[in-house]
């Protein structure tokens, strides 16, 4: 496969609190192509976030592999995966922002180790925030922001480095209708620019919006195509 992310017989096992092993992802096969937006639906606890984390190189699969542009990144040693992760933008289910930093500082965090000048970091961060209509509170500490505002900051943070792979977990959970639509448009634009975009959601607005025909359902650790 060239251009995109592929899961090949991906299995992820987790130990439950009572000590039993639970297969969160079970022999999962899927291909997410570059330039497309893929939407994954599933019940709470179905393993959507685990799948995104495995795709982002944050978790090593118990079995199987993740290929990025044909390269088996899930098998790479940590040092190589650390560097590859710079091509990935990820939005976590809970925003995972650093509360005492401003929105702008949170957004330019991914740029810091890439050698940009501080002024350039700020400029790119503001640009990303503006894209999400979040530049109005760029200098506010994020612990003062509402859930919806924090979510938009988290999306801006994922977009700021112009990732090749954008993995977004529940992007519209805390948004009103207009903001949800704007976010969906932004994600489509990123995909249209050539990135591989994978979005998980159980927000009915985005599931029924028809923003993409590449729709999947995650059930029993396996991915079933719906579109």
């Amino acid at each position: 496969m060239k251009g995109g992310l592929e899961c090949h017989r991906l299995t992820f096992t987790r130990q439950s609190p009572d000590g039993r092993e639970k297969r969160v992802l079970n022999d999962l096969n899927a291909t997410f192509f570059a330039g497309q937006l893929a939407l994954i639906a599933g019940e709470t606890g179905a393993g959507k976030s685990t799948l995104l984390h495995a795709l982002a190189g944050l978790l090593r699969p118990t079995q199987g592999e993740v290929l990025a542009d044909g390269e088996p990144v899930s098998r790479w040693v940590s040092a190589h995966r650390d560097l590859w992760r710079r091509k990935v933008g990820i939005v976590f289910q809970s925003d995972r922002l650093i509360g005492d930093l401003s929105a702008m500082e949170n957004v330019f965090l991914p740029l810091v180790p890439r050698g940009y000048r501080p002024g350039e970091c700020r400029r790119l961060a503001i640009k990303a925030l503006r894209r999400l209509q979040a530049d109005g509170f760029a200098t506010e500490a994020v612990h003062k922001l509402s859930g919806g505002e924090r979510q938009r900051v988290a999306i801006a943070r994922a977009l700021v480095s112009q990732p090749s792979y954008l993995l977004v977990d529940e992007p519209t959970a805390h948004q009103d209708g207009n903001s949800a639509a704007a976010i969906a448009d932004t994600l489509l634009a990123v995909a249209a620019a050539g990135a591989t975009v994978v979005v998980t959601a159980h927000d009915a607005r985005i599931l029924t919006s028809g923003i993409t025909r590449h729709r999947y359902q995650l059930e029993c650790g396996r991915l079933r195509m719906k579109g």
């Binding site: 040092a79 650390d82 992760r85 990820i90 995972r96 180790p113 890439r114």
Partner: peptide, 16 residues
Amino acid sequence: RFEIGLLKALGWTTGD
């Protein structure tokens, strides 16, 4: 460790 994990998720290497 959340903060370190987050930085690595955002593209920071162990070296960074």
